[in-house]
Design a protein around this nucleic acid. Structure first.
Lengths: 145, 145
DNA sequence: CATTGACTTGAAGTTGGCTCCAAGGGATAT
DNA sequence: ATATCCCTTGGAGCCAACTTCAAGTCAATG
């Protein structure tokens, strides 16, 4: 793979499922560094930029705001001397925790709906969605992993 | 627990960590049914409403939009005869899949950053990060799984 | 040389999800 | 009765994250 190939804004946008406008927007808000320009002022992108944009996409999918991503993006500021700080570790752990909470929430929702589901059978009129999970009604929903 | 106690908008909002404005907003967009009013036109809420609101909170935490929640909320439209459709099951499975993708994305991010990290260790020219524990730099981020 | 098309810019517009505001209604406390 | 609250309404305002727009540059093509 030719990892050093230079891309136009259109190419790099297409490859990441976003629009050129969005790429420029990311540059504008400083999430991407100012792209190098060719003689005709057009932006050119290298593999590092591709990685950055991929990373933004990943982080977005995990529910992180563009603003929160800035520290992560900082890892690319210089081509050498990458040094992720303990601070970054902390941010990552924090974010991982957020995702875990999302999972827990979903699990609660599943339990909750399942209670409603079986209510017809159980005659239950107790308030569902209790703090504790007394059972695993829809177990296996996460397929173990 | 007095599950049948009627609550004011302030009470139900407080108990769910949202504002009265937000409760009224949910009613306005039809996510909550029009609340019953007392003679003075004030809203009154019962346990079902509390459940609905807790459910909205849960679904929100899993990244669902208010709009997407509507089908789930429909489960409360009548106090009896709750019958979640196969359609709802499908929606739930879909959403569960979305969460799974979020998890995968986060995992990708971890792997990605881990690459960057080990790159520094493996052929870091200038980067003089202390050389301890070259193995699994960010291992255990998900506590296994 | 005129047109096409991909690019440039700054700025305005859009959407979702609230959040705040003004103007007013009633119950309770002094 | 005046103040203090919490409530009501419709509507305006706000922020993030785009998205669209207007006006222009530049290179290649017919």
């Amino acid at each position: 793979m030719d990892a050093t190939r230079e891309l136009t804004i259109k190419e790099i946008a297409d490859r990441n499922g976003i629009t050129t406008d969005t790429v420029r927007y990311y540059e504008k808000i400083g999430l991407l560094p100012r792209a190098e320009r060719k003689m005709n002022r057009h932006r050119v992108y290298g593999p590092d930029d591709a990685e950055r944009i991929r990373m933004i996409g990943c982080l977005k999918k995990t529910g992180m705001s563009l603003d929160e991503m800035r520290p992560y993006m900082g890892m690319y500021r210089s081509k050498e001397g990458i040094r992720p700080t303990p601070e970054l570790h902390r941010l990552m752990e924090e974010h991982r925790e957020k995702i875990r909470e999302q999972i827990d929430s979903l699990q609660q929702v599943l339990d909750f709906i399942d209670d409603r589901l079986t209510e017809g059978f159980n005659r239950g009129q107790e308030c569902a969605l209790s703090e504790e999970k007394t059972k695993e009604p829809l177990a296996g929903f996460f397929g173990r992993r």
